[in-house]
């Protein structure tokens, strides 16, 4: 170090000179980026109409009026819709995945048809079909379950099931063939092998994408805002919209958005953690 410091720039080997030049260049680029960012922030702060923004979107008094219903009803219902659709989706997905891997062609066709239809349709369309078309056309009546509309859970389950079928199928196929051979060589039946050897391992493999689907589902529950709900079965987005409609102040939306983020951000952290752990386990 000290020897190098005493040497002039021209005495340094080419390798060091080139390295120093690159380090200096990247430092300069970093500084430029910081300056530009700071200018943008300064402009926004200086020219934004903060009083109006605060009044229209961050009205503390209006925000306070949303409580406790936004938690005890809206967020609670959103979570019930999410978990209900997730359980339904995993169940449908598992059945469809197994059917798609079946050696019997009709099962495979059924699964493929199901998956293509519900992945191909917009989720909102499925919600309309279940929520509005099925009751009027088929005379089906969907009761309230756990205080929420079962039609919403069913519609989202159908959509999630189609996506999860492919995820779970990939997980099943990723379990090494040797696992099946070991199980069969011990005398386990095909069904036992699937149930107690393959599926537990498949689920372990797909926990990260499964959790990811949970986050997507949570956000998709907002689509249920278009479904006919009662004051007791309302989810978060509809709750925010109803409050907004009273005097067109945006604060309820902001508070509802914060509620979503309070759930989704920790969940995505869990997904990242699970992915790291899965990688480490291999």
């Amino acid at each position: 170090m000290s020897v190098e410091a005493q040497l002039g720039e021209s005495d340094l080997p080419e390798l060091y000179r080139s390295g120093r030049a690159k380090a200096a260049r990247s430092k300069r680029n970093r500084i430029i980026t910081y300056v530009i960012s700071a200018v943008i922030v300064a402009v926004v702060v200086a020219y934004g109409d903060w009083a109006k923004i605060a009044d229209k979107y961050l009205d503390v008094e209006r925000a306070g009026e949303l409580f406790p219903e936004i938690i005890t009803i809206a967020t609670k219902n959103t979570l019930i819709y999410t978990v209900g659709a997730f359980v339904g989706g995993v169940t449908i997905g598992l059945v469809m995945a197994i059917m798609k891997l079946s050696s019997l062609r009709p099962y495979r066709w059924f699964a493929i048809t199901y998956i293509e239809i519900f992945r191909g349709l917009p989720a909102l369309m499925t919600i309309f079909l279940v929520g509005f078309v099925a009751p009027t056309a088929l005379g089906v009546r969907f009761p309230q379950v756990l205080g929420v509309e079962s039609a919403g859970i069913i519609a989202l389950s159908l959509v999630a099931g189609a996506y999860l079928a492919e995820t779970i199928r990939a997980g099943i196929e990723a379990v090494p063939k040797g696992q099946v051979e070991a199980a069969r060589s011990l005398g386990m039946t095909q069904g036992q092998t699937l149930r107690i050897v393959v599926i537990p391992q498949a689920f372990r493999l797909v926990i990260p994408p499964l959790t990811n689907e949970l986050v997507l589902l949570l956000k998709d529950t907002a689509l249920l805002a278009s479904l006919g709900t009662t004051a007791a079965s309302v989810e978060l987005t509809k709750f925010g919209k109803d409050a907004f409609n009273k005097d067109f102040n945006g604060t309820p939306f902001v508070v509802a958005a914060v509620m979503y983020l309070l759930i989704t951000i920790p969940l995505t952290q869990v997904v990242a953690w699970l992915e790291r752990r899965n990688k480490a386990m291999r």
Binding site: P176, Q179, E181, A182, S185, L186, G187, I196, R204
Partner: peptide, 28 residues
């Protein structure tokens, strides 16, 4: 399935069930 109960098999790649402990593998 009945035949295979009586024929133990050991594989090159072991093929232990990774989600079970050693004793879990042997008891399953």
């Amino acid at each position: 399935d009945l035949v295979r109960r009586d024929i133990g098999m050991v594989f090159q790649q072991f093929n232990l069930f990774p989600h079970l402990s050693a004793i879990g593998n042997v008891t399953l």
